[in-house]
Write a protein that binds this DNA or RNA. Sequence first.
DNA 1: AATTTTATGTCAGCCTTGTTGACATATCTC
DNA 2: GAGATATGTCAACAAGGCTGACATAAAATT
Lengths: 176, 176
Amino acid sequence: MPDAIPAFKPQAPEQSLDKDILAEMPAYDLIELFFFAYRDFVSDPDRILDEYGFGRAHHRVLHFVSRQPGLTIAELLDILRITKQSLNRVLKELIEKNFIESRTGTADRRQRLLHATPQGHDLALKLAKLQTRRIMRALSGAEPQAKEAISQYLLCLIDPDDREHVKHLVFGPDKT
Amino acid sequence: MPDAIPAFKPQAPEQSLDKDILAEMPAYDLIELFFFAYRDFVSDPDRILDEYGFGRAHHRVLHFVSRQPGLTIAELLDILRITKQSLNRVLKELIEKNFIESRTGTADRRQRLLHATPQGHDLALKLAKLQTRRIMRALSGAEPQAKEAISQYLLCLIDPDDREHVKHLVFGPDKT
DNA sequence: AATTTTATGTCAGCCTTGTTGACATATCTC
DNA sequence: GAGATATGTCAACAAGGCTGACATAAAATT
């Protein structure tokens, strides 16, 4: 299709060229940088988790429970997108080792409201700080607006149907 | 500690306040957005890989081999940071199913130079385009400089000792 | 009050993908 | 020829996903 329909050709030739290139040429740089960045980003916590006999799955659970005291099982499953059997395996260990506490719901007594114990909060904070250090180092050389651009980019990588949910989780229900 | 030691208080109150906040307050937003974005970013390829009986491990191998024809086993191990046994399991399958070809090195006949077959390139490209679509969608609303800021950010998240190596891999040996 | 739905827990077994350790082979280097 | 290097392979194990089936308590519905 080298010869476009005349009506389309003169209209915005640069943009259509751009579009063609983008359609043909994968964004290898961002794909690969994302892979390498994530690989190293999760490697910091790994070392510490090892000392506790925990893995990444435990980290994810502990993180979200610590961040949102009173989180229910159903909400956690929705965040992690794993099965309840997978969740239960690591959650049970976190409870047994006293990093998370499971309380029966008050309004709905079928629910379990999850809370991090002081020990749990300590570990979660320790790991979050480790990752924060890496983030701050990466941000240190950047312009002030960069952080906003990066947040926006990451948010828009998320499935559109889940974006509002994530916004809610990350920035809180207050911030519209 | 509401009352600071007088000697410290007057000295750069804004900056020290900033630093304190950063030291105390984890970057929960970027930590969590990174998690959710990565979760969805890898989910696109997963669906297609399933049809071929492949998993994420196969994807990673195929991607880098397709991107760098003639890649050796040692180089691939260095990129993926897994053991040769883990690599061999998936590589063997990719070769058996004719997505990758292993040629004996010419200069050093001990080496295996890996190449994607036409079928392999097709699949790799198909997956890369899927991910590119998501990336472009996320970038579409952003300022033109945003892409540069994001690349820079991701690059700086990578371990400093590996950064030059990754730069080399992603942007090519030519670009300094 | 009886029934159905919902939230959670649990058992059993399977798959992928990572790990370690040991050992084999071909080839290159000294 | 001896030793180092690049790769392949066998066996066993662990983490963390998955499915399917079934159990229980509490809420919701009829």
